[in-house]
Amino acid sequence: MIAVLGLVVGVVVGLLVRPEVPAAVEPYLPIAVVAALDAVFGGLRAMLDGIFDDKVFVVSFLSNVVVAALIVFLGDKLGVGAQLSTGVVVVLGIRIFSNAAAIRRHVFRA
């Protein structure tokens, strides 16, 4: 419950404050958000499976974000930033979909 509240508060604060995104972080923010979403869906699924562990969640969340940003950074340096970010988004999207499928099976039994 507290976690859901945290998400809601984050969205509200982000919309209200509308902070200027630093130029250095700009290309990585969307990918980081998608990676974090993947971690959240994974965590939700783990919770439904009964194997949720907050330490694992924290580590996976942070490492997801860092690795995603790192891949984009590396891609930018190699000159294939656009393709690599597309790839990262595709992979994360597939994972989110499969996690969502597992969650759906738990919640709706279908």
């Binding site: 419950m1 507290i2 976690a3 859901v4 509240l5 945290g6 998400l7 809601v8 508060v9 984050g10 969205v11 509200v12 604060v13 982000g14 919309l15 509308r18 902070p19 995104v21 923010l29 980081a32 958000v33 974090a36 979403l37 959240v40 965590g43 907050d54 969640f57 924290v58 969340f61 942070l62």
Partner: peptide
């Protein structure tokens, strides 16, 4: 719960921004 809430806060914030 607090730690997860913090992380989710960060996610929501980043998403909204």
């Amino acid at each position: 719960q607090l730690i997860v809430a913090l992380l989710l806060f960060g996610l929501g914030f980043g998403l909204a921004v």
